[in-house]
Design a protein around this nucleic acid. Structure first.
Lengths: 141, 141
DNA sequence: TGGAGGTCGTTGGTAATACAAACCATCTTC
DNA sequence: GAAGATGGTTTGTATTACCAACGACCTCCA
């Protein structure tokens, strides 16, 4: 197996598993009256406080789409806006306490759904997988 | 670290990476005039020929949502319907040649976007990751 | 065998999601 | 201090998504 092939095989598995997880998350969202996109928003805001454009760029969405998403979630009291003190054009977005609480609950549900799959791996394999995923996250490069 | 914690840590990494890949796929889709959901549909149909309800269940969507998605993609000549010969209520869905061609192209683009990340892993690590993902796919259990 | 009740997919109605273009406010650069 | 770039919102339109209701078909069993 050449190096090219190993990338293709891995890519295929990653995309496939991504779709599988996405299906689970879509159902969890629907059960809580949230779209997949909103779930993604909460997932990001869990430990960050980006501006609107950053959020849109990360999600791969247009900034005008972000405005609406934020509007509706703000109306539900799940997240909030605050003018960036340094750049007065920019608007920072962050979770409210209610948003954090909801996000925690959603992760709990995701855990319940996905844990049976993860249990097919031995504990040492789970740690190995975690370690292998780490370099793929946060593309600071 | 207890076993509980190892699942939580892994879950967190998996969800995080899923969101990251989803962001890339959303952008690729947008550049090709396709929604993330349509991408997911093509990803499934690549090697399957499910009926409408199966597709909806896998995606975590309502069957009426599927009808519309299939309608539009069919109108674009990317996929087709065919009555299931065994169960005349059911309708099978599958990619047309044009749909297969498009799907191949999209996977190529995904590869281009994600390969730089994957290159951070050594070849043996990539194979290890592929092997670890395999048990998580296709939950026949 | 002939309904009764279930499943499959579509349709119609409504709200959320998403893009593009136009806009004002602010920042950057020179 | 003006020209051009960037940040976010608004407006308008198409897609995505749910639910409820429907006709067609299947299954079961009385």
């Amino acid at each position: 197996m050449t190096s090219e092939d190993s990338v293709d095989t891995l890519l295929d598995a990653l995309v496939r598993y991504t779709f599988q997880v996405t299906g689970v998350l879509t159902r969890i969202g629907a059960a809580n009256d949230l779209s997949l996109t909103q779930l993604r928003v909460f997932g990001i805001l869990r430990d960050r406080r980006p501006r609107v454009t950053e959020l849109a760029a990360y999600l791969g969405l247009d900034k005008s789409t972000m405005s609406g998403l934020i509007d509706r979630a703000e109306r539900r009291g799940l997240l909030a806006r605050e003018k960036n003190p340094t750049d007065r054009r920019a608007v920072d977005v962050f979770l409210t306490p209610a948003g954090h609480e909801l996000t925690r609950r959603l992760y709990g549900e995701a855990r319940d759904f996905l844990a049976p799959d993860l249990d097919r791996l031995r504990p040492d394999q789970r740690e190995q997988l975690t370690a292998l995923l780490r370099p793929l996250l946060e593309p600071d490069s």
